[in-house]
Design a protein around this nucleic acid. Structure first.
Length: 771
DNA sequence: GAGTTTGAAACT
DNA sequence: CAGTTTCAAACTC
């Protein structure tokens, strides 16, 4: 730095110290810590301890959880990093001083930057240019809320990440540094906003933007702070120039990070994640690199996530950074999802109103972001989320697939059900996708879910007539993907009986449903729960997955691949008399499983496995199917069987495979709501998403699930099923298939499975409990 | 789109 | 538990 510059800076700094900006900064530091605490708590609360009830709003929680988890993870990593960083230490002393010092932080930050070296500056400089760009861009993208959004998010995330109220001083120091960066970001945002805002709302918009996120994150200790903040905002508007100048003066590194974040956000739509990353990352020397990387990432984001991944691989040095970026993206994706949901999580409040207004934008942006990002590899295609969601949004969740899944969460998760909910769902799925994608590219299951959701959100709604809906569904489902989103067409059952697929799946009915006099809605949650209880009292397994994978059967598989289907069985068996178990009338067939001894079917020709154990899928099946068929049916069956054979024969051996196997449903695809439900809807849903999205998440989720199905768990762990597998299972295939697998947690159900199922059922009970 | 078939769910 | 009815999905035309 040139001395003159320094002098100027010092002078400017002195000026600024009094300026509202500093006040703002000061105010920020305290705020963040506060948030962090609550968040952590929420997270804990959210933690898997107990799967949300189906009808409750598991989804949301799940999403939130995922989001939090991710954040936390980053934090964890970030913190350590920070600690490791000497720079932080240097600052820590200052930081530790107190909030009041915060104002000085900027100066200190500048100093740091200076100390750190030119490199930082360079980075900062580059960034600055970018910032300008951003500022220019932001206005375009974000009119009012959006701009504010990102910034707040950053702060929020930072908070969440850094939060640590009770943490040791060192932690605090970290936090503060983070805060600095955050604060800087915030300032940056302010500037941007100021620049942008002149147009309309200005401070308010920004404020609003903050609020949404802020709710969780930005909690003002006192109302005064908030107002002060606003005042700052206003002032900032007035003093945009000063801010800009100030910005230029501010530590570039931090600034850059923040900006990058913003840019990313703008691009991706989910600034939060990026921000988080920034926050998480210490300002250390790596920070500069990160900055650069971030910039690069920004550019990359538009391209593909994969590319990023590759890049990561490329240089070890940058690996960490890259990794973050990836994480970021991942996180972003998730977060996006979560945001959607979570915005809820931390932001539930997140300006619902705003969201509604912005949601579309966000969604679009997010989606675009996702897509841009790469649409994660595997994921790509199917939205598992739906599946998870589907059911109880819980489900599958994911599956969420369907809005129904959403159904569970009346409030938040359920939201999906509503039109807005749909949007959410759509988002969820997307997120799920994103989540999933990153993790499991290959996972098929996910896709289904995701897609459904997407489609649901998008199009179906318009269709009014049930049939149209059905047709649409069929179309969607046919691909085998939309399963997640089932829709019912109940007219007399009020969707409070097992006749109703939605209800049976433990999911609330959503718009796409063509049901009449539907009581299976969050509004009637009490009724739904009561009814459920009633039904469960009669039959505890009523809501359990109908198709269960049996470990017992496994041996069968080993014996005969053909028999593999047997590995999975219908819980109670079918009772078909005329369909020869070759049509979807047959639950076994529908579930993609072979008939078993428990079936009372007549003339069983189940392509997946006959009751007598005779050739399930083999040639026979084909021929039989052909016979059975009815042309289209036969063809479908053949296709299915073929598919099954392909994948199934191979896969079949593995129980998991079953779940994985493309179900016959493909034709219809109802999703595995059942499975979702069984799993405990939301939990599943979350799991799927999580699993896909986050390895961590998936793991924990998996644990969760695993815990649920005791018996099966072992099997699952046995190796067949992994959380991922579960996710997969959920995806594409028919409801049952996925459900069984998923239910199991992935493991199949057998008869033993039933018992397990019962255990799993508890998840359902959760529903009851939830209320 | 309307109507029929089918089998699960519900009821007795 | 068995038989019957109700129901909604699956299927056909």
């Amino acid at each position: 730095m040139d001395t003159p510059e320094r002098n100027q800076i010092s002078a400017t700094l002195s000026k600024f110290e009094d300026s509202p900006v500093f006040n703002y900064i000061n105010s920020l530091s305290p705020i963040k810590p506060v948030k962090s605490v609550p968040i952590s708590q929420t997270f804990n609360s959210l933690s898997f301890s107990s799967p949300p009830s189906v009808f409750t709003s598991p989804h949301v929680s799940c999403l939130k959880e995922s989001r939090f988890l991710r954040r936390h993870n980053p934090l964890g990593t970030s913190k350590p990093k920070v600690s490791s960083q000497d720079v932080n230490k240097d600052h820590s002393s200052e930081e530790t001083l107190g909030d009041s010092t915060r104002a000085h932080h900027n100066s200190s930050g500048l100093r740091e930057n200076i100390d750190k070296g030119i490199i930082v500056r360079d980075a900062s400089i580059e960034i600055s240019s970018e910032h300008i760009k951003f500022s220019a861009e932001l206005p375009l993208k974000y009119n009012c809320g959006s701009p504010g959004y990102a910034p707040p998010l950053c702060g929020d995330e930072a908070n969440s990440l850094f939060e640590l109220p009770g943490e040791a001083a060192s932690d605090v120091a970290y936090v503060r540094e983070d805060c600095k960066t955050d604060s800087v970001d915030g300032e940056m945002h302010l500037q941007e906003i100021c620049q942008m805002e002149p147009k309309s709302e200005g401070p308010e918009c920004y404020w609003d933007g903050l609020i949404p996120d802020a709710p969780d994150m930005l909690i003002f200790n006192s109302p005064g702070e908030a107002e002060a903040f606003k005042g700052l905002m206003h002032k900032s508007l007035d003093s945009s120039i000063r801010l800009s100048d100030f910005m230029s003066m501010l530590p570039h590194s931090s600034m850059n990070n923040g900006r990058k974040m913003h840019t990313v956000d703008s691009v991706a739509s989910s600034s939060e994640l990026e921000i988080e990353d920034h926050c998480s990352e210490p300002i250390t020397a790596t920070a500069t690199d990160q900055m650069q990387n971030n910039l690069a990432n920004v550019a990359l984001e538009t391209s593909n996530p994969n590319e990023k991944a590759n890049d990561q691989v490329v240089s070890v040095t940058h690996r960490a950074i890259r990794r973050r970026c990836l994480d970021f993206e991942m996180a972003n994706v998730q977060r996006k999802n979560s945001d959607d949901n979570s915005n809820t999580g931390s932001n539930t409040s997140e300006s619902d109103g705003r969201n509604t207004a912005n949601e579309k934008q966000l969604l679009t942006t997010k989606r675009s972001g996702n897509s841009q990002r790469g649409i994660l590899p595997g994921i790509g295609l199917h939205l598992n989320a739906l599946a998870a969601v589907k059911d109880y949004r819980g489900i599958q969740i994911e599956k969420l697939s369907s809005g129904r899944q959403l159904g569970l969460p009346n409030t938040t998760s359920l939201q999906i059900c509503t039109s807005q909910e749909h949007q959410h769902l759509a988002l969820v799925p997307v997120s799920s996708e994103g989540d999933l994608d990153p993790l499991d590219h290959g996972v098929q299951p996910n896709e289904d879910c995701s897609q459904p959701s997407a489609y649901m959100a998008g199009e179906d709604f318009n269709q009014n007539s049930p049939r149209k809906k059905r047709q649409v569904q069929r179309k969607m489902e046919t691909p085998g993907e939309t399963e997640g989103c089932k829709r019912c067409n109940c007219k007399k059952s009020k969707c409070l009986k097992l006749y109703c697929e939605c209800f049976a799946a433990g999911v609330y009915c959503i718009e796409p449903c063509a049901c009449q006099d539907c009581f299976n809605k969050p509004i009637h949650e009490d009724t739904v729960l009561q009814t459920r209880k009633q039904i469960e009292s009669r039959n505890p397994l009523a809501f359990a997955p109908k198709v269960i994978r049996s470990s017992d059967t496994v041996p069968e598989i080993g014996d005969d691949p053909n028999k593999t289907p047997a590995s999975a069985r219908h819980k109670r068996g079918c009772n078909c008399k005329k369909s020869s178990c070759l049509k979807k009338y047959c639950e076994c067939y529908q579930g993609g499983v072979g008939c078993s001894i428990s079936c009372r079917c007549e003339g069983c020709k189940n392509a997946f496995g006959r009751k007598d154990g005779s050739a399930p899928v083999g040639l026979e099946t084909e021929t039989e199917e052909a016979e059975a068929s009815d042309k289209g049916v036969a063809e479908k069956a053949l296709q299915n069987t073929e598919e099954h054979h392909d994948s199934a024969t191979v896969a079949t051996p593995l129980r998991v495979s079953r779940s994985m196997l493309p179900l016959p449903f493909s034709s219809k695809g109802k999703p595995p709501r059942s499975f979702v439900t069984t799993i405990s809807g939301s939990a599943l849903f979350a799991c799927q998403k999580l699993g896909k999205s986050n390895s961590l998440w998936s793991q924990e989720a998996a644990k969760h699930f695993q815990t649920v199905p005791d018996d099966e768990m072992p099997d699952i762990f046995g190796g067949d099923i992994s959380p991922i597998s579960c996710i997969k299972t959920s995806s594409p295939n028919g409801k049952r298939i996925s459900s069984p697998n998923c239910d199991m947690g992935s493991s199949p159900s057998r008869r033993g499975g039933r018992k397990l199922i019962l255990q799993s059922i508890p998840s359902f009970p959760s529903l009851t409990t939830h209320p």
